[in-house]
């Protein structure tokens, strides 16, 4: 299995719960956004997958997106600008 490194950004209350705005992860490929969430984020974030949106390399993605080496993923609470 290949190892890949990704960067994950956290915003709003996701950043508060992770105590970080950015973290690096080393993961075993293949792994989807949803799989990564279940494995590493569901616990500390404290809410199920459906509560969050995800982007990779600044485009919105669904949880079945297959993560790639070097991806910049973001965990995004519901947006509330305006």
């Amino acid at each position: 299995m290949a190892t890949m490194r990704i960067t994950v950004l956290f915003f709003s209350f996701a950043a508060d719960r992770m105590n970080a705005r950015e973290r690096a992860y080393e993961l075993e490929a293949p792994l989807t956004v949803g799989g990564f969430f279940d494995q590493s984020l569901a616990g500390p974030l404290g809410e199920p997958l459906a509560a969050w949106l995800f982007s990779v390399n600044q485009e919105w993605v669904s949880p079945d997106y297959l993560l790639q080496e070097g991806d910049e993923m973001a965990v995004v609470p519901p947006v509330s600008g305006g």
Binding site: F13, S55, A74, P77, V79, S80, G81, G82
Partner: peptide, 13 residues
């Protein structure tokens, strides 16, 4: 303005 509020990654506290 509706789309800005729905799709731009900005959060308010």
């Amino acid at each position: 303005i509706d789309r800005v509020k729905q799709t731009v990654p900005i959060w308010k506290k």
